[in-house]
Design a protein around this nucleic acid. Structure first.
Lengths: 350, 350
DNA sequence: AACGCCATTGGGAACGTTCCCATTTCAGGT
DNA sequence: ACCTGAAATGGGAACGTTCCCAATGGCGTT
């Protein structure tokens, strides 16, 4: 018998542990643990050198799973998004990833495809991993679960929208300012009637805010303002084209369409190109959310852009503050939009 | 003294453990553990009912961190991508997320922004979390680290490109077929000279394959074929415009531009719109990678589309096979592209 | 010379699971 | 009645860390 332990399979050797390092360096495992933790200052110079040498020799890397178990800190942040393919989500995720990296956290990303049951499942999984914080962009179908987690002490930041009955931090766009900016521009350009196309937003605060403010500002400027809520199906370009044509032919005065987000802008463009070869000679178009291709379509599509990367970054920043121990009432961080004027909001003589 | 343990803070109660459930149900913790694990069949009907009731009462959810420590299986898959903002990456990620969900795994997502040092750091972090598998889309700057992990037994799948000296599974596009499809289309449409714009691809197999095949097919069809490698800076629309104009004016024969990926297509479009009001009356354009806005620009941009979501899904599927114990030589799964013919590849009388 | 204190270091319990092995129970065959 | 073995259950070690507490040793103070 060579050893009292496992025969140790020939090829792959066992990952070294803090124990191995301790033995190799001739110190206690506690000291090695201190080397990695925040008690590094306790160690003497000789000790540090010996530990470092042993780590190098063995190629040791601490096991975060074991560390999480005893230490309680997993270093994991849960990120639950409603629609991974939405450009908004992508940029937000990018900002969040950046911020996590800065703070030494890692992101567990979950996509719910706007499905409440799936969201619920993802929340359970994240709970299983003992995430330290949650950033969530939710349609609002799992309020009880979220409230429970929040009250159990899980730091949580809502993105883009806040949810009634869920007292927690939130990061998003200053929708009032954004819509004011957009409508003022359209007024300045001389449009006399406006149509907003939006997705149905039963419980989604940001969508409701945009519609409310749109009506308000248009009314203030004495313009007629209509709002069309297009369900998933009604966003289909062909069906949308019918709606748009009706609205266009109802009145001779120059009109402009406002798209409530990038998804809507894309579909409205498709619809307009079905109707006209050069649609922007007949109607103005302003999109909320700027995406790279907006500058390429027709004479360029005017947009009101939100700083989405900053929003994602800001979400993590708020989380870090809570993790740092900040208590107190929920905060809302709202970012300002800016205008990208392009050719789609210039009135051509017809 | 009421108890020998902690005074138990008033508000938030401790998360229940398998122990609490066992006590409440009047069974052993082993049985509760069996309830969740794959030894469920060992339990009698009564036992199952009592455990279920206790779980319900306490709101217990197993701790995956503790489970990972002893059990060795973390349920975590690492996903390292070179550029999170690239539409390719987004769709791929979406497919991978979908597949992970099906198999009960969760994704730890890392973005490297094409930075080797950052990629290295992310790989270390993932190693710390004992991921069970790795899907990576790499510029190729950390071969030694990757080889080491692979040889230590970590299942690994490369996405989009394979790396010399790294023997591991790979999922991507059948570049030969894709380019053949694109070039044939251009030939059929009557173009007589071709220009491919690509990003520099020193170590990137997919880029090299596209260039090589482009040259080959063009030569076969007796067309002149030029390739322009645009560095990050040279992708700037203004500088690109100069390059394109030179090429256009060098010859009268009708020519078409092939863009090696969506990023390039976007910038080339910007450049063309700087040169002409209606660029596609002067030059043909074909893009590799289809993105939603391609149909909207000018008369629509013809594309060769890869099934990116399937590629992401496929990557996880391969990983699962390896996790299931499949051994043997590295496999490559290549998907076929399909053509979306649009207005940008129709020759207009000039 | 005895004392106390700070700076270092080490030993061992604990975190919440899973897994190995031992134990109990009971049916069925001799 | 006894033995055998399968089915069901429980006890305790182990996973690799962190953290509490105790121990050691050197040095300045009374």
């Amino acid at each position: 018998m060579t050893a009292s332990h496992l025969p140790e399979p020939a090829g792959a050797h066992r990952r070294p542990t803090i124990h191995d390092v301790a033995r190799d360096a001739g110190v206690s495992k506690t000291s090695v643990s201190r080397y990695f933790g925040c008690e590094r200052a306790l160690l003497s110079g000789t000790m540090v050198k010996r530990i470092e040498a042993a780590i190098e020799r063995l190629g040791f890397a601490p096991d975060r799973i074991a560390s999480s178990l005893r230490g309680g800190r997993t270093g994991l942040i849960g990120m639950v998004v409603a629609d991974m393919r939405n450009p908004y989500t992508v940029d937000m995720l990018h900002g969040a990833e950046l911020a996590c990296r800065e703070h030494g956290y890692s992101l567990l990303v979950c996509n719910t495809d706007n499905d409440d049951r799936l969201e619920r499942r993802h929340l359970d999984v994240l709970h299983g991993y003992s995430i330290e914080g949650l950033v969530i962009n939710t349609p609002g179908g799992n309020v009880p679960t979220l409230v429970a987690r929040r009250e159990a002490g899980l730091p949580m930041v809502l993105v883009d929208r806040h949810i009634d009955g869920l007292a927690c931090d939130m990061v998003g766009l200053d929708n009032e300012q954004a819509i004011t900016l957009g409508v003022s521009h359209l007024v300045d350009q001389g449009y006399q009637r406006l149509l907003m196309i939006t997705q149905p937003g039963a419980g989604i605060s940001s969508r409701k805010a945009r519609v409310r403010m749109f009506r308000h500002r248009a009314h203030e400027a004495d313009l007629s303002a209509e709002v069309h809520e297009a369900t998933e199906a009604a966003l289909d370009p062909s069906r949308l084209a019918v709606t748009l044509e009706q609205w266009l032919q109802a009145d001779e005065a120059p009109g402009a369409i406002v798209c409530a987000n990038a998804m809507v802008t894309l579909n409205v463009c498709h619809a307009l190109f079905k109707l006209y070869e050069a649609p922007f000679q007949h109607v103005g178009l302003l999109g909320i959310d700027d995406v790279p291709w907006c500058a390429l379509v027709g004479p360029g599509i005017t947009t009101v852009a939100q700083p989405v990367v900053d929003i994602g970054h800001g979400a993590i920043d708020m989380l870090m503050q809570r993790l740092g121990g900040t208590t107190g009432d929920p905060q809302a961080t709202l970012f300002s939009a800016h205008l990208n004027p392009r050719g789609s909001t210039i009135i051509r003589s017809s």
